[in-house]
Structures are given as C-alpha cells and as structure tokens.
C-alpha cells in the first residue's frame, strides 16, 4: 500500500514536471495560436480520460458526453451572469459538481439494467439537456451567450488564453492521476471485474451497482470540469456549438483509438487524433477534420480492438 502511494506521488510529480515543461515550451514559443491549439488537445485528454474511467474500465458506454460537457460550460455561463467576479477555478469545481450529480442520477435510474439501456439513456440525455438549455433564457437560450474574456491572465501575466491553458493542464494532471490511481486500486479491479463478467463479479461479492455509480459520477464530473472553462475559450456559446456532436465523437474515439485498458490510451489518442485534426483543418477543410475521428474510430474498433496500446503490447491475452 505504502509503495503504491509512493508510486502515485512520483507519478503526480512526473505529471506536474511534464505540465510545467509543456507550459514552458509554450511560453518560449510565445505564440497565442500554440496555446489555443494546446488547450484543445489537453481538453480532449481530460474528456477522453474521463470517458474512459466509465467506458474503458467498466465497459459501460456513455454517449452523452456533450450533456456533461455542456452542463459544465453552461454552469460557468450562469455563474458568470450571477457573480461575474468569481474566479474560474471555483466555476470549474461547481460545474464539475453539477455534472457529477447528473451522472449519478442517470446511473441510478438506468444502471440496474443491461448496459445498452444506460447507453441509450445517455444518448437521449444529450438531447434533453440541450432542450432544457435552449429553453433557458437566463443563459442565452437558443440565441447564445457572450462571455467577456479578460485581456490578461490573473497572477501570472501574459494573455488570458495562457491562464486557460494552465488551468486545463492542472485539470489534466488531476484526471490522469485519478485514472492511474483507480487502475491500481481495488476500485480498478472491481471495475475490470464488471467489464469482464458482471454476473460473475456480482456473484463473487463485488458491489457492482455501487462501483458503477462511482464510475459514472467521477466520469461525469470530470467531463463537466473539462467543459467549464469553454465559455471563456470561445467567448460566445450557443447550444448548437456547446452540444456539438464532435465533442462526443472525439471523447469516445480517442480512448478507443489509443486503447481503453490504461490511462496511456486516451492521452495517445487525444494527442494523435487532436494533432491530426488540426493539420487537416488547416490543410484541407473543417469537414474533413470532423470526419477523421469517426472514420478512425470505426476502423479501430473493427481492426484493432485494443487500440494503439494493444498493438504495442502484442498478443498477451
């Protein structure tokens, strides 16, 4: 136990060092485009890892990524209208808490049944949350809402997008550390038992419902946190862009492409697919960049079911 704590501590330290290095390189480049691009990739690492905590570890597919993501984003819009001076980190925590609650509620109602019903419910959840937001005038309704992005970053100076990037990096460290800690704890073994044979796990005394609810809550909460800074990033948020299906497809495609069995997969997937998308967006068209994640996802689930990580690990199973 003590060694696992020490290993986790080392891991977190390594992540922080890596995050600082990445930010240092960004500062050295000093180009705001680098930060805008970096933000998107890191955001997808967070989203993909959050999705993977439920999808990859327990095998329950959440298609309602946009619902959780947008709950985070719109809670920031609402807080911005209520208390404009609130620091963004608080908004992130609150947005995450709302999304976690929704995850818990949806899970509680549907997770007693076969996994597909949960998946279908989450698909429908995305539509219903969008309907609610579209009808909620306080956060802009169908017209959308503007959020003023401050010119300068608080505390550290430089452009505000650098601050957003640092926050997202910090979130990324937390999410990756959590995901790795889960993998190495009894929680992770419980999740894996659910994934491999839920009936047998239940029979062996694994509290499956409780574990599934923990996974949906964590996963939903992190997705909400990933969405919370979005209004400051885009400065104008309307339901069509906040609930864009791209977020869901990317969040699902990236872990599946990278590999769902460990925290490395979503990171690999997000960096590769996110980078490729940016290249395509610049060189070909924005439609092509949207398509690539979907096509890659289908190719990988058919041809390489264990993702890139699986390709390197060889045929262990």
């Amino acid at each position: 136990m003590a060694s696992s704590v020490a290993s986790s501590a080392k891991f977190v330290l390594a992540l922080i060092v890596a995050a600082c290095a990445i930010f240092g390189v960004g500062r050295a480049i000093g180009n705001s485009y680098a930060f805008f691009l970096g933000y998107v990739v890191v955001q997808y690492i967070v989203l993909g890892t959050a999705w993977n905590i439920l999808g990859g570890y327990t095998g329950y597919v959440n298609f309602g990524v946009t619902a959780f993501f947008a709950i985070g984003a719109y809670s920031t819009v609402a807080l911005y209208k209520l208390i404009p001076a609130m620091p963004l980190p608080f908004m992130i925590v609150i947005g995450g808490a709302f999304a976690a609650l929704v995850g818990l509620g949806t899970g509680y109602l549907t997770l007693r049944l076969r996994g597909v019903f949960f998946s279908i419910a989450t698909l429908a959840l995305a539509v219903v949350v969008q309907t609610l937001i579209t009808n909620w005038d306080f956060v802009g309704g169908a017209r959308g809402a503007y959020v003023l992005r401050p010119k300068l970053a608080p505390l550290m100076g430089g452009e505000y997008v650098q601050y957003l990037f640092v926050l997202m990096l910090g979130l990324c460290v937390i999410v990756l550390a959590t995901a790795r800690a889960i993998e190495r704890s009894s929680l992770g073994y419980g999740f894996a038992a659910i994934r491999d044979d839920e009936a047998a796990a239940e029979a062996a005394g694994v509290p499956t419902l409780k574990l599934k609810l923990i996974a949906t809550t964590l996963s939903g909460g992190f997705m909400g946190m990933a969405g919370a800074p979005l209004p400051y990033y885009v400065t104008y948020l309307d339901p069509t862009s906040g609930f864009n299906l791209n977020y869901a497809v990317n969040a699902i495609a990236m872990p599946l492409i990278g590999g769902t069995s460990s925290w490395v997969g979503p990171v690999l997937g997000a960096v590769l697919v996110g980078g490729l998308q940016e290249v395509l967006r610049v060189t070909i068209s924005s439609a092509a960049n949207v398509l690539v994640a979907g096509v890659l996802m289908v190719v990988f689930v058919i041809a390489a079911p264990r993702g890139i990580v699986g390709l390197f690990e060889g045929k262990r199973k």
Binding site: G55, G56, T58, G59, Y60, V61, F63, G115, V116, S119, I194, R195, D196, D197, E198, I252, A253, L256, T260, M297, V301, P305
Partner: peptide, 10 residues
C-alpha cells in the same frame, strides 16, 4: 463481455 458490446455500440 461488456467491452465487446462497447465496441459494437461505438
């Protein structure tokens, strides 16, 4: 297995 249905759904 759950992860098989996961891939089918995806």
């Amino acid at each position: 297995r759950n992860d098989q249905s996961l891939r089918g759904l995806s």
